[in-house]
């Protein structure tokens, strides 16, 4: 068996179309899921931090607990919802990249919500009097606090990205690992492992790690830059 590193390198060097397609789909699915989770989770987390309503504590605890939601369970929930026999079957979304995006969004959302709430709550304690003095309502304070917490929030978004890009249970169930259509890096790794092609599986794993590493390095660099620039 060749060294997995050599296999990984020659795979990339060859520019194999199927591999590129798989990498492209993985990134598209995960990045879209991160985007959707942020679009929903950032306002929701800020609202949880700033709003007072009965049952707020329970909602916070629920989101914290959902951070530990097993990917397979998230996948099953989305599967049952999207199946032709489920409530949203008419959308014909099962075994599509959209279904995978939904499942991953479900996985990332609790991380984004919980972290946002914690960051915004801390900032609010510091900013509260000043913002009120400047004339900001709670509603208007939310985007201000989100923007001022952007460096800390980036960490949470990265954690979400990591969870989504690494998971296989959910996308396998709702995507079906269809060649050329819903096969991602992680489901391809699972498939190659089941075929006993362990070298190829590890090579794919190395490529996935390299991608994750590059993205994290870029985000970390951006965070450092922002810290130095913005204090």
């Amino acid at each position: 068996m060749d060294s997995p590193f050599a296999t990984a390198f020659s795979l990339i060097a060859s520019g194999d179309a199927a591999l590129m397609q798989i990498i492209g789909l993985s990134l598209r699915v995960t990045l879209t899921a991160v985007l959707v989770a942020c679009a929903v989770g950032l306002p929701l987390g800020a609202a949880l931090a700033l709003a007072a309503f009965p049952g707020r504590g329970a909602v916070i605890v629920a989101f914290n607990a959902l951070m530990g939601l097993p990917p397979v369970v998230a996948g099953l929930v989305v599967y049952l919802l999207l199946s032709r026999s489920g409530p949203f079957g008419s959308l014909a979304l099962l075994f599509t990249p959209t279904a995978m995006i939904l499942a991953q969004t479900l996985l990332i959302l609790p991380i984004v919500v919980s972290l946002t709430r914690s960051v915004v709550e801390d900032l609010w304690a510091e900013y509260r009097e000043q913002l009120r003095s400047l004339g900001a309502s709670r509603l208007r304070a939310a985007p201000t606090l989100l923007w001022d917490g952007r460096v800390s929030l980036l960490t949470g978004v990265l954690a979400g990205f990591g969870r989504a890009s690494a998971e296989v249970g959910a996308v396998l169930i709702v995507g079906g690992n269809i060649a050329g259509h819903t096969r991602t890096m992680t489901t391809a790794i699972t498939l190659e492992t089941s075929r006993g092609e362990l070298g190829l599986a590890v090579a794919l794993g190395i490529i996935l790690m390299a991608l994750t590493l590059a993205l994290n390095a870029a985000a970390w660099g951006a965070g450092q830059w922002a810290r130095e620039r913005l204090g």
Binding site: E126, Y127, E129, Q130, L131, L134, G135, A136, R140, T144, W147, D148, R150, L230, G231
Partner: peptide, 20 residues
Amino acid sequence: RPVLLRRSVAANLAYPLALK
């Protein structure tokens, strides 16, 4: 201890004006 926003000096001046 004034709370300054994590943005530029000019943006700090502009912020309350935008609120108004």
